[in-house]
């Protein structure tokens, strides 16, 4: 694919066209190398695993206790694990944040932009890597959490395999899109603290504030925040909307975040 260039000749412009695909592939491989070679990535994923296992057991045991006391709290075990994602999603928020903000805090953004000078390509490379990690991690966490929750909840956690599949796919896609929204936010804000606080506010504070206005139209907006959409995506439901709407909502958040990040990345000096 690549033609050897004589040392002092002017680089042939035709190279750009023929090797575009391999350039994209190189960018993704670059971002992948960075993310997996930094130890914090593995710490974050390990804590996510620990939180999922502990949370699944706790919520499963709670479902069992409530169920034996006559409350109707039975739900499929995968759905119990999905509830732990309200906390565990922080791992993907952190990965999305650090994927870009740590580059600014450590100065490695210089290496990145020297290697891949096009801002769009940098952001796209990070997006692909986070998508893969988010989908795989989300699905895997549900997969390992489900037996724990099922064991703890006993007869109140019975589930069918479609429940598990839905939770795995929904959580994976949901968390991946969430991390991409945060990536865009981080690219715009450049500070880990600001990015994490903004994301947390959107995930946990804004949904509780909106109903305080007492206006139905404003309260309804809360349904279109990321957490609510992830919940719809991960569990078989029609309330408040069905999964295609949830997917569209999350793609919208991710796209808006990326657009914001790209605009700031382009217009500001590195």
């Amino acid at each position: 694919m690549t033609t050897a260039t004589p040392q002092n000749s002017i680089s042939p412009t035709s190279e750009a066209g023929t090797s575009r695909l391999s350039s994209w592939w190189g960018t993704v491989a670059f971002e992948w190398t960075k993310l997996v070679s930094v130890r914090s990535t593995w710490w974050i994923l390990a804590s996510a695993l620990a939180c999922t296992l502990a949370g699944s057991w706790l919520l499963g045991a709670s479902a069992l206790a409530s169920g034996r006391n006559g409350f109707d709290t039975a739900m499929p075990a995968p759905a119990i694990v999905v509830q732990t994602m309200l906390i565990v999603e922080m791992a993907l928020v952190l990965l999305g944040t650090f994927a870009i903000t740590s580059e600014y805090s450590t100065g490695s953004i210089m290496t990145t932009l020297q290697s891949v000078p096009r801002r769009f390509r940098v952001l796209a490379g990070k997006t692909v890597v986070l998508l893969i990690i988010g989908i795989v991690a989300g699905a895997a966490l549900i997969l390992v959490g489900t037996p724990v929750a099922a064991g703890a909840a006993a007869e109140f956690g019975r589930f069918e395999s479609p429940d598990l599949a839905r939770a795995m796919i929904g959580t994976g896609v949901g968390l991946a899109l969430l991390s991409i929204f945060v990536l865009g936010l981080g690219a715009a804000l450049r500070s880990a603290a600001f990015t994490i606080i903004t994301a947390l506010a959107l995930l946990h504070v804004v949904p509780n504030i909106l109903p305080l206005f007492g206006v139905e139209a404003i309260s309804d907006l809360a349904q279109y925040l990321p957490n609510q959409a992830i919940a719809v995506l991960a569990v078989e439901t029609t309330q408040p909307y069905e999964w295609p709407v949830a997917l569209a909502v999350l793609v919208g958040w991710a796209g808006a975040g990326l657009l914001f990040g790209y605009a700031m990345l382009r217009s500001r000096d590195a």
Partner: peptide, 10 residues
């Protein structure tokens, strides 16, 4: 460009 090259965790 500057002595800070790459990510310190790498």
């Amino acid at each position: 460009l500057e002595p800070r090259t790459g990510h310190p965790g790498q």
